[in-house]
Design a binder for these strands. Structure first.
Lengths: 186, 186
DNA sequence: GACATAAAATACCGACCGGTAACAAATGAG
DNA sequence: CTCATTTGTTACCGGTCGGTATTTTATGTC
């Protein structure tokens, strides 16, 4: 039956539309397996979506962490983030993690807990990145690092979410560049 | 049976949680009426949510338009927007319009069309506001008015959406102020 | 009181949901 | 070959959804 294939099918479906709009029945049909098979493997819908999220994290989200921990300096890292959010083809239909976070209350407890974990890890990564910029003397104004990190994360999330709703990528790049310009003010 | 009371109940329920998470059954129960009564009055779920959106627009959204068309100048209008998004108690559980827009694909055709109408009207209002600022010589850099209007609208939407997810209002104000500071750069 | 009319509620429809019991086909061990 | 265990399938469960046919209750008129 191949659990990996099922995960891939589910991830693609969740990612392309929205976890709340894809039923277990639909996933079984798309994967060509029966419902009991899926339930024997993943236990519940919550178990499946949690496994999907884990797979998505190591397959896609890891790259954002790579960018943030790359140590390329403030300006270079920001342009990398802008490129990723506004132009990477994988974000063309949005980010599965942000879709899950936006519909957190509709998720099962396991998946929701994992979403919160990842959210905290992302926030920590943004904080570490900005703290490094601060230490390197690249930090502009009196904004706290935590607030800046949250702001940065939410702007990236907004940009990617707009990708999912079909907004023109060039327009998105323009807006995200504007939003992040507060970090590189003269 | 009182259609206004039903609209109020439905608006409150949709607004407080999310239109996608409130069923027609639940609304009937909360309003103390039967389902056929509701369907006689509004025709369908789509008809109800459309009527609710109309009521919400004239009750709440109208105020944002008042702020935008107030002719108070760039800086003053921006701080008014920041106050409204980050501190107005009515936005404590978010904005019904933004919730509907975020889940557009789950709405019926009438309601969805109305959402798009309102979205276009809001965009036009932001454009008019920024165009007035441009004419008054208060416009900073080479950003196009349309892009600036979209940016402004999305930042306000982001701030209000964060209210709905329980974020600290002071933190939200800080971030929105930062985002809108690009309009008032020296 | 008798009766047409309009508004209300009860009870139901088919579709889909997440989840599972009961059963058939394959597979490995002795 | 036999038998037990696993793997997968069909068919079903209770529940909720949006929506409606049917019946009850009220209301006004003569």
């Amino acid at each position: 039956m191949n659990a990996e294939k099922v995960l891939d099918v589910a991830m693609t479906a969740y990612w392309q539309s929205d976890p709340a709009d894809v039923s277990v029945n639909a996933i079984c049909q798309m994967a060509g397996i029966s419902k009991p098979s899926l339930y024997r493997e993943f236990g519940s819908e919550d178990g499946l979506s949690r496994a999907v999220l884990d797979r998505y994290a190591e397959l896609v989200l890891s790259e954002i962490f790579v960018v943030l921990h790359g140590g390329q300096g403030l300006r270079r890292t920001l342009t990398d983030l802008i490129d990723f959010a506004s132009a990477d083809p994988r974000m063309e239909t949005g980010c599965l993690f942000y879709k899950m976070r936006a519909g957190k209350h509709r998720l099962g407890p396991e998946t929701r807990a994992r979403v919160e974990e990842i959210d905290a890890a992302a926030q920590a990564a943004y904080v570490a990145f900005l703290q490094a910029a601060l230490d390197a003397g690249e930090w502009p104004d009196g904004l706290s690092v935590e607030a800046g990190a949250k702001y940065l994360g939410e702007q990236v999330a907004l940009a990617i979410t707009q990708r999912a709703s079909g907004e023109d990528p060039e327009r998105i790049r323009e807006m995200l560049t504007l939003a992040l310009s507060v970090f590189t003010r003269p």
